[in-house]
Each structure stands twice: as structure tokens, then as C-alpha cells.
Design a protein around this nucleic acid. Structure first.
Lengths: 230, 230
DNA sequence: GCTTGTAATATGGTATACCATAATCTTGCC
DNA sequence: GGCAAGATTATGGTATACCATATTACAAGC
């Protein structure tokens, strides 16, 4: 077995479907397709240069993820989220993220503390960045570290999907200017509590952050509802 | 149009895909397809009498649900669950279900109490029934009432999906003979706490029940792991 | 007889073309 | 101007063809 090291290069980890899935998910999350907008198959095929099969499978997948809704007889649209949906999603995130922060603080290691602090640094850079995408990714990375540190990969999966559904909302809340400073302060508190191995403080910090975030989101949605009824 | 009344009942809600999705989901949940078993497209087409497209879309959907896993270059298999997965799933259920029980107890109305008690009755009948499917459905109905009463439909959605992934485990734990009595007793305590409008007691009852259940599940998986390594 | 290289088969992945139906839009008639 | 019939569009559903790859089987060489 002299060639043991040369096993297969994980050759095509990128199937067409996966790429289209990511592209469309990102497009929905970044608001390229707005909530309620119809996702007509054939135009999408042309735009992305793939066959209907791929598009249809992708839509099925995103439907299961909750990003796409299928109206009987009409076809797929970008899922619409209402105020109550958002409330519930934030409530669930609160449970899962507090548990993750607790777990991460409990299992904290020097290495993990290091990567967490790194992620926080990138997060701060993201805030000063103009592009909203960078901040998005940096936020996801930071939380990813927390869930990873807690070993809670299934909860992380759920949180990511929930985040996809409230992405538009997060985009707005993150770019609300008066939100930036407290947002960073919250993250710093969370990071500090976790790295110092204090589960209770970590839980409280996350609770505080999410209560704040969800209140902002709720106000936004309330304002939207109001303006719709004018 | 003399036969107007005889047109097919508003068949729209039943698209072929949905039917196949339900059939396959049930088949996986009920153990017709075992974990790790390959789901070969063309045979499935023959068995279900549909085209590959439908099968493929269904598989994509079930993949997003976590019931199916896709091995690169090999194709879809029924997802395999390990001990750690189960642990995490039970932990998440614990959070979501305790919150739901609390919420339901807080909002309890006479009507809801009535439907809950009804569901509990059916649950008891289900325990004496031989078919495991009946007990499954009755359990789902009971919890559905609780989440419904709490208004937490998104959490309910998540719990249902998680339950799909541990269905095999639930099947075994439910049919474990010495599990039946305590199981019913737990359900009765939960029902009683909720209908009497006592959120704290409801939370504790659910916690107790799930700690018990997950411990049984974990023992089962531990035993399986052991026998595998013989 | 064992290994190795090659052919055959099975399967997933992708692309296309086609049909039926339902919703929508258009148009022409009253 | 309103309404109804037809045209258009989009979708769900199906069949099929093609390619790439992975597994298996088989045959040839040592």
C-alpha cells in the first residue's frame, strides 16, 4: 500500500443540483426574489442554464426547507412570512441558541475560545463593511462556532433553516444603523461569557440579545403591516 | 352536465407527488425501508407506478426532511441515525415540547381541554390496540393538540420532522411492553396539568416524560451498538 | 491459482420533448 | 360595457435518451 495517501480526491462534491440549490437559496435569502414572487420554472431554467429537472428538484428541496411555498394550481412562490411566524421563529431560536451557548461555555477549550474570538473579530469587520452579505456570513460563522463548540449540530441545522426564513428581516435589522452598536456589544458579551466558561452568563447574554433582536423585528413587521393597510 | 355531482371530488389537494411523498415517508417511518437501505429509483418507479421525475422530487423533499441521505456517487439511502443524533433530537424535543405544554396550559380553554382529554382517550385505546400505527397516530394527535393549543405551529412542524427521524426508535420504545404503563401515566399527568391550567406542572410533566423516553431510547441504541461490535 | 485489466451492467445525473389540465389573458360578440 | 369563448401560459406529469461513474463479472496473463 505505498499509494495509501493518494486515495481519491473527493472529486465532484459539487453536483449541479447542489449548486443550483445554493444559488437559489442565496437569491431568496438575499432578496433577489421577493416574498410572494412566483418562481416560474422555465424562466429559471434559462436564467440558470440548467434543465427543468434540476429546477424542480431544487424547488422541492427549498419547499421542504420552508423557503418556498407551493400554491395549488399556481405553482411555487417565495414563502411569505407574517408577524406571528417571525415571533415563533425567534422564540425557537432563543431556546436553541441559549442552549448552545450554555453547552459551548460548559465545554470551552482554549482552541475553541480562540476561534470564537477570531469569529468575533471578523464579525466586527463585517459591521464596518458595506456589503450586507459579508456581515451575514460572519454572523453565521460566529454562531456556527458556538453550536459547534456545544456539539449540537442538529440544532444548528434547524437554526440555519429558520434563519433562512427570516433572512429578509435579518437583513433589515442588521442594516438598521442604530442597531449596529448594540449588536456588537451583545456579541461581545456572548463571546466573553462563553470564553470565560460561564454557562449562566452565556445564556443570559444570548437571551438579552435575542429579546432585543426579536423586538426590533417585531416593530419592523408591525410598521409594515400598518403601511400595508393604508 | 347531468353528471355534474359525480366529478372527482376537488382532487386538487392530491397531487401525485404529495401522495408518493406520503407513501414513502410512511414506508420509511414504519420501517418498510430500513435505515441504510438503498432507494433505487427505477424499481421505486415500478413499485409505485410513477415516473422517475416524481420519485426524484420526492427523494429531494425527504432528503431535506432528513429522512433520506444521499451518498455521492451511490445514490439515496434511508438516513441512518446514531446515538448522538438521537440524544440531540430528544434534547430539542424536550425544549420545544415543554414550551408548548407551558403555552397550552397558559391559554387553556374549556374546548381545548375537552379535545385534549379526547385525544388522551384515543391514546389509551391505541395502547391496547395491536397495530403500532394506531398508537403512533394517536400520540401525534395528542401532541398536535398541545402545540395547537399553544399556537406554536412552527415548533410543531419541527417536532414532527424530528419525530420522523427517530420513528424507528419510537416504534420500539412504544412497543416495549414495560413501557406502556408509565407511558400512559406520563400522558395523563401531562394532560391533567395542562387542562388544569398549570404551566409549571405541565412543563415538569413533559420533562419527566421525555427524560424517561430518551433514557430508554439511549439504552436501546447502546445495546444495538454493543451487539454490532460483537 | 491469484492478480490484474477490461467489458458489461446498473445507477445516478442531466436534458428534452410531449401531453393534459388549470389558470389567466384576450378578444370578439351581444 | 359586460360576458363568454377561445388563446395563452404555466404547471404537473410522463417518457426517453444520453452520459458518467461505480460495481460486478469475467477473462487473460503471471
Amino acid at each position: 500500500m505505498s499509494t495509501a495517501k493518494l486515495t481519491k480526491i473527493d472529486h465532484p462534491p459539487a453536483t449541479l443540483r447542489d449548486m443550483v440549490q445554493d444559488r437559489m437559496r442565496d437569491a431568496i435569502i438575499e432578496g433577489v426574489f421577493l416574498p410572494g414572487e412566483r418562481l416560474v420554472e422555465r424562466p429559471l431554467c434559462d436564467q440558470l442554464g440548467v434543465s427543468r429537472t434540476v429546477i424542480r428538484e431544487t424547488i422541492r428541496y427549498l419547499e421542504a426547507e420552508g423557503l418556498v411555498e407551493i400554491l395549488p394550481g399556481r405553482g411555487p412562490i417565495v414563502a411569505i412570512m407574517n408577524r406571528e411566524d417571525a415571533r415563533q421563529i425567534y422564540a425557537i431560536r432563543r431556546m436553541l441558541e441559549t442552549a448552545a451557548a450554555e453547552g459551548c461555555a460548559r465545554n470551552i477549550t482554549p482552541e475553541r475560545a480562540h476561534t470564537l474570538i477570531d469569529a468575533l473579530e471578523r464579525l466586527k469587520l463585517g459591521f464596518s463593511d458595506k456589503a450586507p452579505g459579508a456581515l451575514f456570513r460572519a454572523t453565521a460563522d460566529f454562531y456556527s462556532e458556538i453550536f459547534d463548540g456545544a456539539g449540537q449540530y442538529i440544532a444548528w441545522d434547524i437554526v440555519q433553516r429558520l434563519n433562512g426564513r427570516i433572512s429578509r428581516l435579518r437583513m433589515i435589522t442588521l442594516s438598521t444603523s442604530n442597531r449596529e452598536r448594540p449588536g456588537i456589544a451583545h456579541m461581545e458579551r456572548i463571546c466573553e461569557a462563553i470564553t470565560s466558561g460561564n454557562p449562566d452568563a452565556a445564556r443570559r447574554a444570548v437571551e438579552h440579545h435575542l429579546d432585543d433582536t426579536s423586538a426590533i423585528a417585531d416593530r419592523l413587521l408591525a410598521a409594515e403591516e400598518k403601511s400595508e393597510n393604508d
